[in-house]
């Protein structure tokens, strides 16, 4: 059996707790950058930044959508030396100088490291060397190689479309222009190599 005094104390404690929790709740909601971000739902017009130039010419519209909008990727075909590939790969005999290099002897294939090394025709189309081919047999334009890379690296592709993987080209404002997979990774050996840092850091204390 509770005495009236105990009841009174219990009631006071409960009331006090409610006051403290409501106050804390109200306080935490009103302040902080996280709350500011949560409240910001209106889209920002990236085109309103006047100093941003139009997208560079060596970009194409991506075939995937980004958070409801379109974006551009860097092209690849104009950066591949000796494109079109069908200039040589056309079932005709070709006589050329430096044949070892020109016939891709300079390519070191190191993709699928330790697990399953990839071969040329895992990605390149046997019948039409100008395009790439997925495991399902879909032909992929070289400018849109993310469609091909994304069949294994689907997590990276998802992040890349959203913006957590890869990087934008020079401008945070304006039309979204991002680097293509092969802009940063060598598709034949995609892992970044070990090298010396460009400079060294200063420690906190000397």
């Amino acid at each position: 059996m509770k005495t009236p005094k105990q009841k009174k104390y219990g009631l006071a404690t409960v009331l006090g707790l409610i006051v403290i929790l409501t106050g804390w709740n109200a306080y935490s909601e009103k302040s902080g950058v996280v709350q500011t971000i949560k409240n910001a739902a209106a889209p920002f017009d990236n085109g309103s930044v006047e100093s941003v130039p139009p997208a560079p010419e060596d970009t194409v519209l991506a075939q995937v959508r980004y958070q409801g909008g379109v974006f551009r990727v860097e092209t690849r075909k104009d950066k591949v030396k000796r494109f079109q590939c069908s200039q040589c790969h056309n079932n005709q005999p070709v006589a050329i100088a430096n044949a070892v290099e020109t016939a891709h002897g300079d390519i070191t294939l190191n993709h699928g490291y330790k697990v399953k090394q990839l071969a040329c025709f895992t990605c390149h189309d046997k019948d039409n060397r100008d395009v790439l081919i997925t495991e399902k047999g879909t032909k992929v334009d070289m400018d849109h190689s993310y469609q091909l890379c994304g069949q294994c690296h689907f997590r990276q592709k998802k992040d890349w479309i959203g913006g957590a993987h890869g990087k934008r080209v020079s401008w945070w404002a304006g039309e979204r222009v991002v680097k293509n997979c092969a802009s940063c990774h060598d598709p034949h050996a995609p892992r970044f190599e070990k090298r010396w840092p460009k400079t060294y850091s200063r420690p906190f204390t000397e």
């Binding site: 910001a40 889209p43 920002f44 980004y66 940063c184």
Partner: peptide
């Protein structure tokens, strides 16, 4: 590409993603 920069008030920005 380890560094992401953008507008926090734009729900379509990369940093928001």
């Amino acid at each position: 590409g380890a560094r992401i920069f953008g507008n926090l008030l734009d729900p379509k920005s990369e940093i928001r993603f």
